[in-house]
């Protein structure tokens, strides 16, 4: 059974293949995501993150979830060589690039704790999977960055997470924190597969700013695989990626 909602301004889809699934587990996930939005939305003036950015609340006095996200942001910054950072130029924080993957990770834990084994959770194309779909592997299509109706690859994540960073905007300009200048990524779509959707999502985002180094960097990481599509329609993949394209 599959249910969809629009939460955090994004399409959320949950598909549970276990026969025992009722509406309850879906609502648990949706409620949790609404809670996350209420705490972490930078668009909501009363959200905890807004209070922190307004200087009203100190991070040390914030909720344990907020502190966990900040600690995670620090960890991701280190593991992406500084390419992933939630700090804005004005010194305020926008953890939304991290919170989506973190929320999907936690939603997966919620369903696991409820003893569901076969499902996926998809928020705007970032997906956590578990088990299989009535004996078949869950399948995820990589959308063509040039034609939204087309799929250019089928991936079977086998319980792992998969996320794609990308844009239709040709020549997207991104800031390279190491070069300290605005650069143009050669990629228009970067798909990463790995155990934890939160890491996968962060790494896909960070790799974009690495430009040509994105795929070699992802290839150098153990247990992460990636498929990057460049402006010219040529895709480059990490050495282990093809293991996810076969049933």
């Amino acid at each position: 059974m599959k249910m969809t909602r629009d939460i955090m301004g994004m399409p959320v889809a949950v598909d549970i293949a276990d026969t025992a699934a009722s509406a309850a587990p879906f609502e648990r996930v949706f409620d949790y995501l609404r809670y996350v939005d209420a705490v972490f939305s930078t668009y909501k003036k009363e959200s905890e993150i807004s209070l922190i950015n307004a200087g009203v609340l100190n991070i040390n006095d914030a909720s344990s979830d907020m502190q966990e996200v900040f600690a995670l942001a620090e960890e991701m910054k280190k593991r992406t060589e500084g390419y992933f950072d939630i700090t804005r130029p004005d010194g305020s924080y926008d953890p939304s690039g991290l919170v989506k993957g973190w929320a999907i990770r936690n939603a997966k834990r919620i369903l696991k704790e409820l003893r569901y084994e076969n499902f996926y959770i998809d928020i705007a194309g970032d997906i956590a999977s578990s088990g299989s779909n009535n004996g078949k592997e869950w399948s995820v299509g990589i959308r063509s960055p040039f034609s939204s109706n087309d799929i250019v690859k089928v991936v079977y994540p086998r319980g792992r997470g998969i996320a794609t960073s990308g844009t239709y905007i040709r020549g997207l300009h991104i800031y390279d924190p190491h070069a300290k200048k605005v650069v143009e990524s050669p990629y228009v779509s970067l798909t990463v597969v790995g155990e934890d959707i939160c890491e996968v999502d962060c790494f896909a985002t960070a790799a974009f700013a690495m430009q040509e180094k994105a795929l070699p960097w992802l290839d150098s990481l153990e247990s992460f695989e990636a498929y990057g599509i460049a402006h010219n329609g040529v895709a480059t993949m990490t050495r282990g990626f093809e293991s996810y394209t076969n049933i």
Binding site: R143, S148, V154, S165, T191
Partner: peptide
């Protein structure tokens, strides 16, 4: 890359995001 006609459970991609 080549467009494929495949039935998939869900899609990961740039346009939604």
């Amino acid at each position: 890359i080549q467009a494929q006609s495949a039935n998939v459970d869900t899609v990961s991609g740039a346009s939604d995001t």
